[in-house]
């Protein structure tokens, strides 16, 4: 690479990094600002204060701890469901032959195209009939039912299983492994990267989801973080520091998860149909 080329290359990278990072630094900075500094353009607060954090941990109802616990519980539950069902179905569609496979897979692909908003009315009616729209703990079940399975995850998992070499399976078959052992002992361990990808993307999607929680969760003690942010924004319109404190606190877990899991995500190989 020539020097000019190298410099322009790096300045492009750095410019785009600034575009992606600075807005977040602003929200971090705002969360430490006293109210009268919010509208000033300084990035480092003149008089930094923890007041906003004291507010979100103590004063708001429900407080940050409750919102966080709910978000974590719901996101983890949905991750477990997605992993189990996507692995099972993805494996069957990729590695097993059975009558009706293509038709059923087409149904799965079709499900990917059904917008969540189309499900809004009938799903809600159904949940009401099942008695899951209430202020008790069974209200969580409604969220788990809505989000039990994802066609996109099945698709991703299938594509990954398609790329696995047949030899691996054959070797285990010669050793006399049954289909289920084959799945749990050979396929799953080798699918760690795609499992991690599905887990991280599902966690992120559920953690950030605003649409369903705002419709389904009836009691404030069940609310999740994004819903809490919106509620809080409604109540405290322009009291930016606590809102930004919530934004920061709700982004940190996702950031940590991503930092930890990024090597898995990067290793996911999207299936290439060219091979096989």
């Amino acid at each position: 690479m020539s020097k000019v080329r190298k410099y322009s290359f790096y300045s492009l990278l750095i410019f785009y990094s600034i575009l992606t990072i600075v807005p977040f630094l602003w929200s971090l900075s705002t969360s430490f600002k006293p109210s009268d500094e919010v509208y000033q353009s300084n990035l480092i607060p003149d008089q930094p204060t923890m007041k906003a954090y004291a507010t979100v941990f103590g004063k708001i109802q429900p407080n940050f701890q409750t919102l966080f616990a709910n978000s974590l519980f719901i996101a983890c539950g949905v991750v477990v469901l997605h992993l189990i069902f996507a692995a099972l179905a993805g494996y069957a569609f990729a590695r097993l032959r059975f009558p009706g496979r293509d038709v059923l897979f087409f149904v799965v692909l079709g499900c990917m195209m059904i917008p969540d908003q189309l499900r809004l009315v009938p799903m809600y009616q159904l949940l009401v009939k099942m008695g899951l729209i209430n202020t008790g703990p069974s209200n969580y079940l409604a969220i788990f039912l809505i989000k039990a399975i994802s066609a996109a995850d099945v698709f991703l998992m299938r594509q990954y299983f398609l790329t696995m070499p047949k030899e691996m399976e054959d070797a285990a078959k010669i050793d006399g492994a049954g289909p289920f052992q084959l799945f749990t002992r050979v396929m799953l361990p080798n699918a760690a990267p795609v499992l991690a990808t599905v887990a991280i993307l599902t966690f992120q999607g559920t953690w950030n989801d605003l649409f369903w929680p705002s419709i389904v969760l009836q009691s404030p003690s069940h609310w999740t973080l994004p819903f809490g942010i919106l509620q809080f924004k409604g109540q405290f319109s322009t009291d930016w520091p606590p809102i930004m404190a919530l934004v920061v606190l709700s982004t940190v877990p996702i950031l940590a998860l991503y930092t930890f899991g990024q090597r898995y995500i990067i290793n996911v190989q999207l299936a290439s149909s060219a091979k096989g």
Binding site: Y124, I133, T135, S214, Q218, G234
Partner: peptide, 18 residues
């Protein structure tokens, strides 16, 4: 309870008869 979007949240509650 202080709603953020009172109209929408009430509609959801009416529909579930709660």
């Amino acid at each position: 309870i202080v709603d953020n979007d009172h109209g929408a949240q009430m509609a959801a509650r009416f529909a579930s008869k709660t």
